[in-house]
Simulated assay, not measured.
Amino acid sequence: MPFFDGPRGRMHYRRWPAENHRAALVLLPGIGQHTGHYHRFATAVRSAGIEPWALDTAGHGLSEGDPAHPGTLAELVADALCLIELVRTALPDAPLLLMGHSLGAVTTLGLLGAAIPDTRSAADLSAVEANCPLTPSLEPTALAGLVLSGVPRRALGAGTPDAPGTPLPHTLPILAVHGREDRRAPIDAVRDWTTRHNWVSLIEYDDSGHDLLHEPHYRTVTTDICEWMLKVL
């Protein structure tokens, strides 16, 4: 089983090798999930000619740590960067796609300095600056595309007037997928966010909640994500 030594301990990841791959996908799961939950999705991605890699969040799956405390956003970003560097080393010529679900989506935006709460309602802006990376740890030009699934409101304040953080560039293709019945991350926040980022593609799913890739419509969601990734490539 593959591991790497991260800043906070031994981290586990999975790789689903794809022959004649045309790109690589780094997947960051949500809290309470691990890479073993994504074999079905990874098989579909690999069939599309994209090689998937995924990280067990600290304290989840086979990664060391406390499952109740996966880390600060800065720590989660640092863990994700370690996996991204492994992918770059193994597949140096492959375009890189990045996908995050829930907490993984927050981390994905955090890598780009864009996981910012809505500071119009923030009581203490210094707390925002202390807890949220405001500059990119990963340059957007390193990515061929970004997929966000079930992203929570707490990361969707970017683009509001005078918000801290780093704006996402219009040149970065972004897909957001979200269930209309999502109770953990209600859809109104991502709808508002996509109006401020009008180049983002938002696909909404009826009768679907937070965990789109493990719900009855998972085949449709998987197909939509794969088709979008192939299009941007």
Rank of each mutant, 00 (worst) to 15 (best):
168 L>V: 12
120 R>F: 04
85 E>I: 05
93 D>N: 13
134 L>P: 07
159 G>L: 02
141 T>K: 14
96 L>W: 06
209 G>F: 03
35 T>F: 03
197 H>T: 11
6 G>Y: 00
208 S>G: 05
81 L>P: 01
4 F>P: 07
124 D>C: 14
208 S>M: 13
229 M>H: 08
5 D>R: 07
5 D>L: 02
232 V>N: 00
128 V>R: 01
99 M>W: 01
133 P>H: 09
54 A>P: 04
48 A>Y: 03
68 A>G: 15
79 D>S: 04
7 P>D: 08
87 V>P: 11
210 H>S: 07
193 W>I: 02
125 L>I: 15
213 L>N: 13
216 P>V: 09
94 A>S: 13
135 T>D: 12
61 G>M: 07
145 G>E: 01
74 A>S: 11
95 P>T: 14
90 A>V: 08
17 P>N: 03
51 E>C: 07
31 I>T: 04
197 H>V: 02
126 S>N: 13
53 W>E: 05
231 K>I: 00
40 R>F: 10
110 G>E: 11
162 D>Q: 12
36 G>M: 10
183 R>H: 05
205 Y>N: 08
203 I>K: 12
21 H>I: 05
85 E>W: 05
190 V>I: 15
48 A>L: 09
219 R>K: 14
79 D>C: 06
34 H>P: 05
177 V>R: 03
18 A>R: 08
54 A>E: 07
177 V>E: 09
34 H>I: 02
126 S>C: 01
109 L>S: 09
33 Q>I: 02
169 P>R: 09
82 C>D: 05
219 R>M: 13
88 R>L: 05
184 R>N: 07
66 D>S: 06
212 L>Y: 11
216 P>H: 08
120 R>Y: 00
53 W>H: 05
19 E>T: 14
25 L>S: 04
88 R>Y: 00
67 P>Q: 04
181 E>S: 14
164 P>Q: 11
54 A>K: 05
157 G>C: 00
47 S>C: 02
35 T>K: 10
